[in-house]
């Protein structure tokens, strides 16, 4: 699947988008997998209460299953308007 990062999550991890092969069943499992990779991921995902997640461009939550999902995006709370 494609994993996208926005705002300070993108800056902390150091890239906007990457292809991830994963067996993670939920978003939380994917976060654990990414955090275990490198310190920059662990730093970005240190406090998931400060993060939001979208699955296939729809807001979702960290318990949501990943089956069939093609695009996951992580970002801080939105500041539009």
């Amino acid at each position: 699947m494609d994993v996208l990062y926005f705002a300070w999550v993108r800056e902390r991890i150091g890239l906007p988008k990457e292809r991830v092969e994963t067996g993670a069943a939920t978003v939380s499992e994917l976060v654990e997998e990414l955090s275990a990779r490198e310190e920059r991921y662990a730093a970005a995902f240190a406090d998931i209460s400060a993060l939001r997640v979208a699955l296939d461009q729809e807001l979702s939550d960290f318990d949501a299953p990943l089956a069939g999902v093609r695009e996951v995006a992580f970002f801080p709370p939105m500041t539009g308007g």
Binding site: L59, P76, G81
Partner: peptide, 26 residues
């Protein structure tokens, strides 16, 4: 519309000031 655009439309603002730059917190 304004209330929802502020918190539910995926935009993020960063302020660039003379002292440096920082993301606007929700």
């Amino acid at each position: 519309l304004m209330d929802y655009l502020k918190s539910r439309a995926p935009f993020w603002k960063k302020e660039i000031t003379r002292a440096g730059e920082g993301w606007v917190a929700a």
